[in-house]
């Protein structure tokens, strides 16, 4: 049985992460922040090493200068690790994680449509959730986006 504190300790030791940046606010919840360069490595270890096999969802946040992405991965015992990473808003490029979690497709498409992230390696398919013909460059979940910005745009 893995628990939140054990996961925290193991991740901190293995990847040399600052324990200040790993928080365990309550039982079965771990929030940690990793630089994007290290993200893939940490995620793979969380999934394969620590056996967190269920992707709850991916949350995208607009933080002004950068876009943050939180990957919530759950263990069968109820523990959820929220892995946060960020990329600059000017070049918001992510690698897809659909090779690890095939069900991540819709969550990544949401990031593309609503936050304007570019996800490399995302399988081709219909866009989601915005309609065909939605104007380019309009990303509703960005903080500077207002409904009025749709006026007069074809």
């Amino acid at each position: 049985m893995i628990n939140a504190n054990k996961a925290k300790k193991e991740l901190a030791e293995k990847f040399g992460l600052d324990t200040e940046r790993i928080s365990v606010p309550r039982a079965r919840r771990v929030f940690l922040e990793v630089p994007y360069a290290q993200f893939r490595q940490v995620l793979e270890h969380v999934v394969n090493g620590l056996k967190f096999r269920h992707l709850c969802t991916i949350t995208g946040l607009d933080e002004g200068e950068s876009l943050a992405f939180i990957y919530h991965v759950a263990h069968a015992d109820g523990t959820v690790i929220s892995l946060e990473t960020r990329v600059p808003k000017a070049a918001p490029v992510l690698q897809t994680i659909t090779d690890i979690f095939p069900d991540g497709v819709s969550y990544e498409r949401e990031l593309v449509d609503l936050l304007g992230a570019r996800v490399e390696g995302l399988p081709a398919g219909n866009r989601y959730p915005l309609p065909e013909g939605w104007p380019d460059g309009q990303y509703p979940l960005r903080k500077d986006w207002k409904v009025g910005m749709l006026d007069g745009v074809k």
């Binding site: 989601y128 979940l141 986006w145």
Partner: peptide
């Protein structure tokens, strides 16, 4: 089968 979702998108999160 091909799926197209999003017809009910109402922007609740925003």
């Amino acid at each position: 089968m091909d799926m197209r979702l999003g017809y009910n998108h109402r922007g609740i999160e925003k």
